[in-house]
């Protein structure tokens, strides 16, 4: 994971609740075995029509949202499938941050692992931020994970909360597996104290 501290850039708004990961990255793309190159498939079915032309009614096709780095959406963002391809695609498209009133658990966890910053704010705060976005000319914002602040183009600032452990991991780009392997002795001791009756290899014949 690459370290992330803050981003300043345009904001895109998809003001819909319960956006599921099947929309974020439709299933036909999940067959790729690569870790990168997912951005072009983001919101494929919503963004493009059957012939591959942009659908003018879809929010991300609004020129005011072009090259946005911050995505704002409705509550329960990322529900459904556990596919980590969803945050990969959001990041690949150019976003560093997603702001929503709430996130689905697995999606939030996946974001933390790849350094896409999920910022949760009370619904009325998200509503106010969305309402302040100029949907004709575009708006900029700064999201600062170190300072835990969101600053609008007009200089107004909103504070947010973030899991302190995960914040440290993202600010420093830490490798989760390396962190856990520091406790290898504890894992080995656990395994010694809790011998398993499970052995998938014993099923082999």
């Amino acid at each position: 994971m690459e370290a992330f501290t803050r981003t300043t850039g345009r904001v895109a708004v998809i003001d819909r609740p319960d956006i599921d990961t099947d929309q974020v990255i439709p299933k036909q793309f999940l067959k790729r075995i690569e870790r990168t190159g997912w951005g072009e498939f983001l919101f494929w079915d919503w963004r493009l029509d059957q012939d591959g032309n942009p659908r003018p009614d879809f929010e991300l096709n609004n020129p005011a949202f072009a090259d946005a780095k911050i995505l704002m959406a409705g509550r329960n963002f990322g529900c459904g499938s556990s596919r980590e391809h969803a945050p990969w695609a959001i990041q690949g498209y150019g976003f560093d941050v997603v702001i929503a009133p709430s996130f689905a658990d697995i999606f939030r966890s996946n974001c933390m692992k790849v350094g896409l910053v999920p910022v949760e704010l009370p619904e009325e705060r998200v509503r106010a931020l969305m309402d302040a976005v100029d949907t004709e000319n575009g708006s900029e914002m700064t999201v600062d994970l170190e300072a835990l602040t969101i600053t609008g183009a007009d200089g107004s600032t909103v504070e947010f909360e973030f899991d302190a452990f995960r914040r440290n991991c993202i600010l420093n780009g830490l490798d989760d597996i390396a962190l856990t392997l520091k406790h290898e002795a504890a894992i080995t001791e656990y395994e010694r104290a809790n011998p398993s009756r499970i052995d998938t290899l014993a099923l082999e014949h």
């Binding site: 391809h85 697995i106 996946n110 989760d176 597996i177 856990t180 395994e191």
Partner: peptide, 22 residues
């Protein structure tokens, strides 16, 4: 419970997961 691919790799390497108690 379901996990993403980074966590799949984490379990492969450590047989553990970092989890907040739900």
């Amino acid at each position: 419970f379901g996990i993403g691919t980074s966590e799949v790799e984490h379990v492969m390497a450590t047989q553990c997961l970092q989890q907040r108690r739900p």
